[in-house]
Simulated scan of single mutants.
Amino acid sequence: MIIDSHQHFWKYSPVNHSWINEQMKVIRRDFLPSDLKPVFVKNGVDGCVAVQADQTLAETDFLLEHAHNNAFVKGVVGWVDLRSPDVDQDLEKYAKDRNLKGYRHIVQEEADHNFLLRPDFLRGISKLEQYGAVYDILIFPHQLGATLELVKKFPNQKFVIDHIAKPYIKDGFYDGWAAMMKEIAKHENVHCKISGMITEADFKSWTPEQLQPYMLLVLEAFGPERCMYGSDWPVCLVAGSYTQVKDLTTNFISGLSTTEQAAIMGLNAVDFYGLV
């Protein structure tokens, strides 16, 4: 079973999706399950986890509606305001929906390097375990220090780092990122998505060889049992096709055992998110 652990749906809005700049204009349109399903059929993908791209409860409801209506959308990583004093109400409401698997905040856009360690945010994170919710960590490398402190504080909370923490591949940034990723990987409650790499490289000139050191570091640090494949569709389309993204991972792990390959390409996501 192949599960894409990270993709998005949206009805394009210049306001809500202002992060889609001129360089990325190819994705300035709607992307819905009807667009993704034929891509999955072509590439032999069985299902996916839909991840929030907008920080509203309406976004969470939007993704859950698609999961209810499309069997291949196996789970949703939504958004609630974890800083809210009333966060329990939202968590309790969404815990009743079997498709809601976890939450994410777009921490990479927060100016505070230590946003993850703010008391109100930590209070929200502390609530997730009781509702059986995982947490997706979306950060840039300069936020890895705060991430390390976060995962230390909650050893029983399941975390996954999105897009290998977005190292600045285009600029050749590696050493600082690699050192921090190794430290974080020592905490066994943290997993990592092998995703989002081609858009951190040069859109037009990236090569698999350029990305190899980053993927190798993640595989060695987290092990095959805590890595999972993700496409970051449709964002990936600014730098390559879905097939290119999938092949990047399958070619990279081709030397592993069939059991390890199956884990990375789907079974780890099934286990981590509790997909059925």
Rank of each mutant, 00 (worst) to 15 (best):
H66C: 12
D97G: 05
Y229E: 04
A50D: 07
K96L: 14
E225S: 13
H68T: 12
V270E: 05
D136E: 09
D136R: 00
A179Q: 15
I139A: 04
T207P: 02
V218Q: 01
Q23I: 00
I164P: 10
W19C: 00
Y135W: 06
L100N: 13
N69L: 12
L64Q: 13
E65W: 01
V238C: 06
G176H: 08
C192G: 05
D35I: 02
P85M: 14
W177M: 13
Y168L: 11
Q244P: 06
P33K: 10
E129R: 08
Q7L: 15
A50M: 07
Y273C: 11
T243G: 07
Y168C: 03
V238L: 01
G255V: 11
G172M: 04
M228T: 09
L150W: 02
E92F: 01
V151N: 04
E220Q: 13
A146P: 12
A269R: 05
D86I: 09
A263Q: 13
D162V: 03
F31W: 15
L219P: 06
L64R: 13
Q130Y: 07
E129S: 12
Y242S: 02
K101P: 07
I137E: 01
A165D: 09
S257Y: 14
A58S: 14
S18W: 14
H163A: 04
V26F: 09
D61N: 13
N70V: 15
N156D: 15
V235N: 03
A58D: 15
H191A: 15
Q130D: 14
K96H: 10
F252R: 06
V190I: 13
K11F: 02
F272E: 04
G75S: 08
A269W: 05
V190W: 01
A50P: 12
G172R: 07
V134L: 04
E209I: 08
L100D: 01
Q261K: 14
A111T: 01
L32H: 09
F272W: 03
D81S: 11
I198D: 01
I139P: 09
N16M: 03
E188V: 15
Q212K: 13
P213N: 08
I3A: 01
Y135S: 04
E183N: 14
I194E: 06
S195N: 12
V77Y: 00
K152W: 11
L91N: 12
R98L: 14
D81M: 02
L256G: 03
S126M: 04
E183C: 12
A269D: 02
K93F: 07
A178Q: 15
L216Y: 00
G240Q: 07
F173C: 07
D202I: 05
K166P: 08
V160G: 00
